[in-house]
Design a protein around this nucleic acid. Structure first.
Lengths: 160, 160
DNA sequence: CAGCAGTAGTTAAATTTTGAACAAGTGCTA
DNA sequence: TAGCACTTGTTCAAAATTTAACTACTGCTG
């Protein structure tokens, strides 16, 4: 019994896992219903639109999306085929390349965003009071920071 | 601006999405490091181990895992190949079949569980105080219930 | 009880994701 | 500055997932 979760934490864990999965599924479905984008597409567009010059190094994009390098390569080529982004060699590092938001990509984002945000509100946010929002922010901010740290630490050490 | 999220909610949303993705990735990685199971495998084993007769109808299992039917078929055949579950025709409904936990499956679960639970604690639970646990439970319980309801409602109506 | 709309689950093809190798370029160090 | 270890990103093959048929069965309805 040493390694178990107490009852309340187990309940929290199960509720979290199930609801998160359902939420994700629902949002993805909504997004595809009123745009031509997947959640991953949307996320790429958001990140690029916020980046200076509306461009990001592949590696940086992969880190933020929490995508493997090869997955990102695939994701970006798919979006490139559809004209949502373009790809340019990186000026200061000839190994690298950058994904760049196109006008069509920006347009697609601006069309999809209202629906998507409405969907996030309808399924999740509108049902939360301010204290709950604060709690989620605190918990997941902390968690994200910790997991980010753990990852860079382990890849630096190369322990194992 | 009608369809946007206010600042605090947007921050909560982003923190949640990122941390959840990182957490999932981390847990999956841990699980694979100290067992032969994926997260999906593990989840199937848990559900079966708790079911009466350690067996569940495919459909029921799919609902609980939030898997598409075909994904579940694939998942279960894979586990069947590895001897973790077996499959039996359902006695009262000749269309149906049941997934049944095997002794090897139960053993694999019991070996993996301590590590996995420790991992959940280490990455998530140990860092939360009781109020936060209560908040998560409340929020995600409610969300799960609501999304579950939305799904059955929409599939009944078959609107769209 | 015949017909038929709906349910349970599988199958097959196409798409996506992973994982391991790889090519190219960088930058330290000796 | 030549050599080498590391980084960046891609490619290829294998595995997983989705989507759309499709088979078999159930259970209502006339």
């Amino acid at each position: 019994m040493t390694e178990s979760l107490d009852r309340t934490r187990e309940a929290a864990w199960r509720a979290y896992i199930e609801a998160s999965q359902r939420l994700y599924t629902q949002l993805e479905e909504d997004l595809r219903a009123d745009s031509e984008l997947t959640f991953a597409d949307y996320h790429v567009l958001v990140l690029l639109s916020e980046a200076p010059g509306q461009r990001l190094r592949m590696g940086e994009l992969a880190n933020r999306l929490i995508f493997s390098p090869s997955r990102l390569t695939y994701q970006v080529s798919s979006m490139q085929r559809r004209g949502l982004v373009s790809k340019e060699p990186c000026p200061d590092d000839r190994r690298g390349s950058e994904a760049v938001l196109t006008a069509a990509g920006l347009l697609a984002l601006s069309e999809a965003a209202p629906h998507h945000l409405a969907s996030v509100r309808a399924h999740l946010m509108d049902d939360l009071d301010d204290a709950e929002v604060a709690c989620l922010t605190r918990v997941f901010d902390r968690l994200g920071r910790r997991l980010r740290a753990a990852r860079t630490a382990s890849s630096t050490h190369a322990t194992r």
